[in-house]
Design a protein around this nucleic acid. Sequence first.
DNA 1: TGCCAATTTCATTTTTTTTTGAAATAAATG
DNA 2: CATTTATTTCAAAAAAAAATGAAATTGGCA
Lengths: 168, 168
Amino acid sequence: MPKNKTDLLTIDSHLHSLELESIDFFVRMMGILGMPRSVGEIYGLLYFSVTPLPMDKIVSRLEISIGSASQGLKTLKSLKAVHSTYIAGDRRDHYIAETEFRKLFSSFINDEIMPHLESAKERISRMEKSLTEENKKSEFYLIRLEKLKKLTKTGSRLLPALSGFLKM
Amino acid sequence: MPKNKTDLLTIDSHLHSLELESIDFFVRMMGILGMPRSVGEIYGLLYFSVTPLPMDKIVSRLEISIGSASQGLKTLKSLKAVHSTYIAGDRRDHYIAETEFRKLFSSFINDEIMPHLESAKERISRMEKSLTEENKKSEFYLIRLEKLKKLTKTGSRLLPALSGFLKM
DNA sequence: TGCCAATTTCATTTTTTTTTGAAATAAATG
DNA sequence: CATTTATTTCAAAAAAAAATGAAATTGGCA
């Protein structure tokens, strides 16, 4: 039983409406970035948690499996969207949401987008190699290839710079 | 039977290696944007097609179903990534890839991202309403809400402006 | 060192998304 | 206006992605 009103926010079996909205918010946000539901749920829960939460609390409050929780936290850690903190006398890891979205975007871009852009460049080289002598004389093919190169070049310059613009 | 070498690129049953690379390229690109495989395939094929292609050619060359082709073209049309063109004496629509990626991004942002940001704002209002009197006194909750507001504000300013920067 | 709680892994199940193709619809032609 | 051709729709099937939870592993601590 909760000792007082404030404790209502931390009972295992109950999600406060603020938390529900937060979870909903981040499930959709993460969804835009192609992240699975569980990742958004976990981040949404942590975002409004005053105290760091251990995995088993996350599992019980969100009612998700420990597998999902573990995998979701792994993803969030790799994105630097959460980090764990030490709590004296407790061997469990306790997680805190990183609230500087700039950092979050930055690692998302680096981890999820840039590798694709790198391999895209290789693919364009292969396209150039597979141009026949015939095609090489054609404006059409040369222009389209040029556009693809510009696309990847713009992408690999602009995207990493983007997070620098943000002040959040 | 093809009349000459150039026609090799347009035989139904055969995809030139340039086309294969192009399809691969755009399947992955569209994948990043959360688009299904078929959408990337169709765009990839059209991107290096000198002549506009009717749906049935797309179906036979990519070996996809007419349902996929129809749905994929619908998606691409709504993104302004392709448009159809009139060919005299042929009642089929013939499709051309839009190669100004700036336009493509612009409509992607408007169609796929902005609506989410709009509803995110509503969700934040609901969060404010569900703050208890207790919470309202807490720096913690107020700061987190402030950050969410800044996030959506930055998003809805920056994203539409982004395509303006691009010269592609 | 051996035990035990915490976490990760991964084969399986469930859910969601995408594709398929037949039927319905629309649109041009004779 | 009947017919043929092109396209869309949509229920069912297939494929892909995500969640589950038991077993394996890790790592602290007694």
